[in-house]
């Protein structure tokens, strides 16, 4: 029981760790929401998880397809930028894994306090800024969406069946060395990391 309680990760997949903050940076359309939902699926096996929804757009169907049981997913709608920090903190006090959309204009000090709270409460926190980026050092690992390629549609035929996303990973979680990773998502199973590409920004060591 102890192992299950501490296991917020599924082997071979993008993982959440208790007390760590993961940043998901990029505009809608790249697939970051589904990556975040897939990462919540592990913790959702042992307790409720929360999606802090600022826009009111999250579709629980996608969460259920990503492996989160409907009984374990709580959606908190908060579009009020001034109330958002208090709500996020209240959620972190008792929920083991949280995906939080971050409204524009939230101060850096607020995000750092939430990160500290996540650490002290041993809660995993995914932050998805709705505008811009996260301040440096808030996220233990930051994934920035670079590009996405969909498979399936064929000039009016077929349907979406899967995609490959290219993400740039940075932060302490990747030893401070920026890495580019490729992720495959066929929509029916959890997101899988398929390759760790050697390509990295010029001037930095390759992963």
């Amino acid at each position: 029981m102890e192992n299950a309680r501490n296991a917020l990760s599924l082997p071979g997949h993008l993982t959440l760790e208790p007390g760590k903050v993961v940043g998901l940076v990029g505009p809608p359309g790249l697939g970051l929401t589904r990556i975040g939902l897939s990462m919540l699926a592990g913790p959702a096996q042992v307790g409720p998880v929360v999606y802090l929804d600022v826009r009111g757009w999250v579709n629980p169907l996608a969460a259920w397809e990503a492996g989160i049981s409907p009984e374990q997913l709580v959606i908190v709608r908060c579009s009020d930028r001034l109330l958002w920090p208090k709500v996020a903190a209240a959620v972190l006090e008792g929920i083991r894994a949280v995906y939080a959309e971050v409204p524009t204009g939230v101060r850096e000090s607020v995000l750092r306090r939430l990160a500290a709270l996540a650490r002290s409460r041993r809660s995993a926190l995914l932050l998805r800024p709705l505008g811009g980026d996260l301040p440096t050092g808030v996220a233990y690992v930051r994934f920035q969406g670079r590009e996405v390629a969909w498979e399936g549609p064929d000039v009016g035929h077929g349907r979406l069946v899967g995609r490959r996303l290219v993400l740039e990973a940075s932060g302490k979680g990747v030893s401070g060395i920026e890495r580019v990773i490729e992720v495959e998502d066929d929509g029916a199973d959890v997101v899988r990391m398929v390759s760790r590409l050697a390509a990295a920004p010029a001037g930095r060591a390759a992963g």
């Binding site: 959606i75 709608r77 208090k86 209240a90």
Partner: peptide
Amino acid sequence: LEDVAARIEAERAVARVQALLGPDAVLEG
């Protein structure tokens, strides 16, 4: 796999959020 104490803690947290935002803002589907 659930820990009873953790479940209670989680429900308290969500109940606090419900008190902050109102029950219509805390949803399941």
